[in-house]
Computed example of a mutant assay.
Amino acid sequence: MDENSPVFVISTAAELAGMHPQTLRQYDRIGLVSPGRTLGKSRRYSMRDVAKLREIAQLSGEGVSLEGIRRILNLEDEVNRLRSRVGELETALADELLNRPGRRVFAAGSAGDVISMRAGTRLRRQNAVAIWRPLEHK
């Protein structure tokens, strides 16, 4: 079963989260947790929704207001989206470096700055370190 599959009816999700079903309805109304819906408009919760409900209960128990909880959840979602995007960019960069080996050369200066250089050029400074990957011969 996928953690995003909406399979739990409200009473089961409430029991799993340790809450009253009316609390889940309130959280749905204010947008803290948005469960899936059946054709008959009944709520269906996923394991991810139940985990979010448990997190809400923990934050609420620590004295965080519902508006504070909403902001925390939104920030966590944004961090997850950004991490995913960074992973995509790292993969794209790695693919680009593998597809065009030897095209870019970088040097590190004494102050820690990165200098982009054309292949085949040398540094004028004696205290800089050049970093490159040799071309693979096939």
Rank of each mutant, 00 (worst) to 15 (best):
S42E: 09
T23F: 06
R44N: 12
S5M: 12
S110E: 08
D77W: 08
V114Y: 06
I30H: 15
H20P: 08
Y45L: 00
L73I: 03
E62P: 05
R44Q: 09
R83N: 03
R124E: 04
I69F: 03
R81A: 02
K41V: 05
G102N: 06
G31L: 07
G40V: 15
R103F: 13
P6W: 08
A13C: 00
R103Y: 04
R100C: 04
S42N: 15
R85Q: 08
S42A: 15
A107K: 01
M117H: 15
R83L: 14
R85K: 00
L24E: 13
R71T: 11
R133G: 13
G102V: 11
N4D: 03
P101G: 00
I30Y: 03
V129C: 07
E67S: 08
R118P: 03
R85P: 07
S65V: 03
L97N: 12
E3N: 15
R104H: 12
R125N: 13
H20S: 07
S116N: 09
T23V: 11
N127T: 15
R43P: 02
G61E: 00
E67M: 11
V33G: 02
A57L: 08
L97C: 01
L135S: 12
V50G: 11
S42H: 06
E96C: 12
T121Q: 01
G40Y: 07
A14T: 07
E3C: 09
G36I: 03
A92F: 11
A13E: 11
G120W: 14
R133C: 14
E62W: 03
T38M: 08
G87H: 06
D113I: 01
Q126Y: 05
D2G: 07
N4A: 07
R25Y: 02
R43L: 04
R48E: 14
S5G: 00
E3A: 13
R103E: 15
W132H: 08
D113M: 04
A119F: 09
L93M: 07
A111V: 06
W132P: 04
Y45D: 00
G31Y: 11
D49N: 12
V9S: 10
L66P: 04
I131W: 14
S65E: 01
R81Q: 14
V79E: 03
Q22L: 15
R100H: 13
L16M: 11
K52D: 06
A57W: 05
S5Q: 13
A94P: 12
T23N: 14
M19W: 06
V105K: 08
R25W: 02
P101T: 07
S84G: 10
F8C: 01
A94I: 01
V86P: 05
G102Y: 13
L123G: 09
V105F: 07
Q22G: 08
A17Q: 01
L24P: 04
R122S: 15
L59E: 12
P21Q: 11
A94H: 00
Y27M: 06
R48P: 02
Y45A: 13
R48T: 15
E90L: 00
I72L: 09
V86K: 12
G18W: 01
M117P: 08
S34M: 02
I10P: 10
R29W: 01
L135R: 00
M1T: 02
R29N: 05
I115M: 02
Q58F: 03
